[in-house]
């Protein structure tokens, strides 16, 4: 190692001694002011577009709901509707819309696609369900928001035997079973975790819709 690299390494060491408040700030401030303005504008436009989509969808869902109610009155609650998120995911593993991956690396966390990913303890394989429509991604984000807002703690008897992650295709990975915090956001890996909270019912509904398509 030459002198320059030794000095660089010393500088790297010394950066470990900067003040705690500066260290803490870097993790607390994730979007600096300059970036926030641009994103706020973009978000406002997106929100208006999303609202239009939601209204259109709501009308559609309402109409479909009316038809479903009529059918259910005749048939009773369907099998899919009675299932929990875990049961839905495990049951979907042999379905055509689900992809099977032999390793976490094969799932593709940087391919630009939002995915629901899970691993079943029984076979160790990874499974993924890609969200191809923008409105599905919006529903997923809404489901996560509700998951965080409700933050229903996992009781000892409710620990699922599968692990579930959401990958945004840009390396960012979260789990609907973890509370919202900086420490619970992964990057470029399907991390192990102990469940802290239960996903919202919206996520189960979205999954049900995706696998029944």
């Amino acid at each position: 190692m030459n002198d320059r690299m030794k000095a660089a390494e010393y500088l790297f060491d010394e950066l470990g001694l900067i003040s705690d408040s500066i260290v803490a700030e870097a993790m607390l401030v994730s979007i600096p002011a300059a970036g926030r303005k641009k994103i706020s504008l973009r978000r406002a436009v997106s929100a208006i577009a999303a609202a239009a989509v939601i209204i259109t969808l709501s009308l559609g869902v309402f109409a479909v709901g009316l038809m479903r109610d009529k059918n259910e009155a005749e048939d009773g609650v369907t099998e899919l509707e009675a299932q929990s998120l875990e049961e839905l995911l495990v049951g979907a593993q042999s379905g055509g819309v689900v992809r099977v991956h032999s390793s976490a690396e094969a799932v593709g966390l940087f391919d630009g696609q939002t995915k629901l990913i899970w691993q079943s303890e029984s076979d160790g394989e990874y499974y993924s369900l890609t969200l191809t429509r923008n409105d599905d991604v919006a529903r997923l984000n809404g489901a996560l928001r509700n998951t965080y807002a409700e933050a229903k703690s996992v009781e000892s008897g409710e620990v699922p035997d599968i692990r579930v992650w959401i990958s945004y295709g840009d390396g960012k990975v979260v789990s609907p079973y973890l509370k919202k915090s900086e420490g619970n956001v992964g990057y470029g890996e399907l991390f192990g975790y102990s469940p802290e909270i239960l996903p919202s019912e919206e996520l189960t509904e979205l999954t049900r819709d995706l696998i029944s398509e």
């Binding site: 950066l15 470990g16 900067i18 500066i22 700030e25 979007i31 600096p32 002011a33 994103i39 990057y187």
Partner: peptide, 27 residues
């Protein structure tokens, strides 16, 4: 300024990948 400081500390204190910093900072 705050933006430069956050980016510098994330890279050289936390050793975060540049792609992750860009993602978190909306850049």
């Amino acid at each position: 300024d705050e933006k430069k400081r956050v980016i510098f500390v994330r890279r050289y204190f936390y050793s975060q990948p540049i792609e992750r910093i860009a993602l978190d900072c909306g850049m």
